[in-house]
Design a protein around this nucleic acid. Structure first.
Lengths: 183, 183
DNA sequence: CCGATCATGTAACTCGTTACATGATTAT
DNA sequence: ATAATCATGTAACGAGTTACATGATCGG
């Protein structure tokens, strides 16, 4: 149950955003570690409004096709603070790439290298993007408490992408030696 | 669509496993990077059998409560090989812990440290477990192609857990300075 | 016999995904 | 006008989760 809290966070970071505004920010920013489609976001905005956690800003529009901006209500901010401090078990991992390598150990690695190279390239691009954001938004020097936390989260992204580029490079180096169908 | 392929891999690694055998191995081993509950596994075993990818070993038992062992059929092995080599886009990330820190940047970090310490301890234990497995199953020396791939996957787990323990330590070091509700 | 546990399954629900529908606004 | 795109939704489905049901086996 994290999507409503992701939306509350995004709405507090930028009040009076619309569904589409939020959708765009779930393609970057917040979306780097919690993705969501516009269908999910509209559904969840409806629920959050029904629960009294957010409200649509008054604008007497007949809805469909018209922009609709929201703001977080005190109850929504309280719920987000509660959730942030609450104990939560880490979700079990699911990584299709690691699973594929384990499968390749059984059925062979034929044809696998092309997609590994593609993934390596994707991770390199993501890493470059994170580093640009870091230089733009977190230049060296005095930071507010808020900025330090945001920078910490960004560094997690940078270090994870760094890991994946290194690991994929290593995997590709091991692959050709192993090539060909066994059995 | 990775669960059926995770099951095919597990079944090829150890043929004539039952649903419960598989369930137990999805709590470790394969489950370290693709978790699944017994309900998911039984449902998927039914589908894989209906598709002709696996078959129940003959044992004339009336099913309910009786052990039922499966083996992978040639069509299942072919499907696994196809899936392993096929291009697949990486799934968008979802990390509740990073989301919580981003939320904490907005609503404050009060009460967050306890759960961060708990997560740190969990990651330390997981790392220790991976290192034990490495020493037990991959001692230094000549490896088969299969063992080298399996070791590569395990090293990914080790390096990811290493990252999280370091990052959480850093996060906890930054936290107290920031403490208290803003606003 | 009886409870614990092994083993297989059903049912109901939520979350996420994919495809499609509909109205409003803007540029040509 | 009309095509593109902005903006908000509906519908159907599949994967994953939680709670429960049922039969078999084994130790006391």
């Amino acid at each position: 149950m994290s999507l409503p809290h992701a939306i509350l966070t995004a709405l507090l970071e930028r009040p009076s955003s619309s569904g589409l505004d939020l959708t765009r920010r779930f393609d970057r920013s917040i979306g780097y570690f919690w993705s969501a489609t516009h269908q999910q976001i509209y559904r969840e905005l409806g629920r959050l409004e029904a629960e009294g956690h957010i409200r649509a800003l008054p604008a007497e529009q007949p809805a469909r096709g018209q922009k609709k901006a929201y703001e977080v209500l005190p109850a929504g901010r309280a719920e987000l603070a509660r959730w942030t401090a609450a104990a939560q078990d880490p979700k079990p991992h699911r990584d299709a790439l690691l699973l594929r390598l384990r499968a390749a150990a059984v059925v062979g690695t034929a044809g696998l290298d092309a997609d590994l190279r593609r993934h390596l390239e994707l991770h390199r691009r993501q890493l470059a993007e994170y580093r640009e954001i870091e230089q733009r938004d977190f230049p060296a020097g005095a930071d507010s408490a808020q900025a330090r936390l945001q920078h910490l989260v960004l560094r997690a992204g940078i270090e994870l992408e760094t890991f994946w580029t290194q690991w994929l490079t290593e995997a590709l180096a091991e692959l050709p030696v192993v090539d060909g169908e066994p059995g």
